[in-house]
């Protein structure tokens, strides 16, 4: 009898502990969603820890990274917009200087093999150097930024907690930012729930849109990340700026006017669209693919089939496609409290 009681009490305590653990949301590090492929990021060089992630998160939101303490990463990568810059075709950085390209969302970067619209950066760890040193973004040097962090009262202990070294090396700074960025995982859209068979179904119109999507869009916007990470000229009219995209990186004339295929996840939060933010609605984008594609150099062959430019999308098909694309919005991601300003 006595023994049985003890067992029951012990079980009760274990149960309580388990509950407590659940409430505290223990930090689990990087977890690959079950319907995603293996990530590209080299976690062997940068294991995500709670202290490292929290440090990266703090840095991401801190304008100390800019020359005059006004611009943080989050200035142009806003969490409620899936870390894009809503309403801005191109972004304004320091002193309201304008860039030339649309601020891309930060999500699922652990699966990306290149960064920026032209893919000029091949390593996530090296990515933050570009905006920090860009004249129209944060306009500083890495050395200045690191020095400001080193003389702050806040950061040395945080780097010590994260990396066991309070001297703040450039490597640790970049690794901390990567830890935050790879944790910006969007995998809880309705689409994901349907795919993971979590008891939710597409509505008939979404289902019809999904079938159309697979037929007309999925060769570039491959599931489940909704990008094939390739560079494509999709036939946008060439703007006055004459941005030649990927060509600027590779100097290969076959790459003129190619830009990275963006993911379509969270498309409802990341307006405007295209590398220069020229379209403000998904409907405009679909109209462009139906009737606006131009035969510019290196136009992808998928946009020039049987003598027709673009992809035929009827009005009825457009409605269905839009319904499906809405299932890619991930409200849990854009409201994730662990990713907002600390």
């Amino acid at each position: 009898m006595y023994k049985k009681q003890t067992v029951i009490i012990l079980l009760f305590l274990v149960g309580l502990y388990a509950c407590k653990k659940g409430l505290d949301n223990p930090f689990l590090g990087f977890q690959k969603p079950s319907n995603f492929p293996e990530p590209a990021y080299r976690f062997s060089t940068n294991e995500v820890t709670k202290a490292g992630f929290e440090l990266g998160r703090k840095l991401f939101y801190d304008p100390i990274l800019s020359h005059n303490n006004t611009i943080s990463c989050a200035s142009c990568h806003i969490s409620y917009a899936a870390f894009s810059h809503p309403g801005h075709n191109v972004s304004h950085g320091i002193h309201d200087r304008l860039g030339t390209r649309n601020s891309p969302p930060i999500m699922n970067l652990a699966w990306s093999t290149s960064f920026m619209w032209d893919g000029g950066i091949f390593d996530l760890d090296l990515q933050p150097i570009a905006p920090i040193t860009n004249h129209v973004e944060m306009d500083d040097t890495m050395a200045n930024v690191l020095n400001r962090l080193r003389i702050s009262s806040v950061y040395p202990p945080l780097f010590e907690q994260a990396f066991g070294d309070r001297t703040i090396s450039g490597t640790h700074f970049l690794k901390a930012l990567s830890q935050f960025m790879v944790m910006c995982i969007s995998s809880h859209s309705k689409y994901d729930s349907v795919m993971r068979k979590e008891g939710i179904q597409f509505s008939p119109i979404e289902e019809a849109g999904y079938a159309l999507f697979q037929q007309k869009c999925a060769s570039c916007h491959q599931e489940p990340l909704f990008t094939n990470h390739a560079f494509v000229n999709n036939g946008l009219p060439i703007s006055a700026l004459n941005d030649q995209g990927r060509y600027g990186i590779t100097l290969d004339s076959n790459h003129r006017y190619q830009f990275k295929v963006p993911s379509l996840r969270n498309i409802g939060y990341t307006t405007p669209y295209m590398h220069d933010g020229r379209f403000s609605s998904v409907e405009q984008v679909l109209d462009f693919y139906n009737s606006g594609v131009q035969k510019t150099p290196n136009l992808a062959s998928s946009f020039n089939q049987n003598g027709r430019l673009g992809i035929s999308i009827s009005a009825a098909e457009k409605t269905k496609l839009v319904a499906f694309l809405k299932t890619l919005d991930d409200v849990y991601f854009v409201r994730d409290k662990t990713l907002v300003e600390p």
């Binding site: 920026m116 950066i121 090296l126 150097i129 050395a143």
Partner: peptide, 25 residues
């Protein structure tokens, strides 16, 4: 990035930081 030390340190503006294209790694 952890192997880019000394003269190759891209975060040291006196060294590699001035000899590095951030936009075209």
């Amino acid at each position: 990035v952890s192997k880019r030390t000394g003269d190759l340190d891209v975060t040291d503006s006196a060294k590699g930081g001035d000899m590095y294209w951030s936009w075209n790694s």
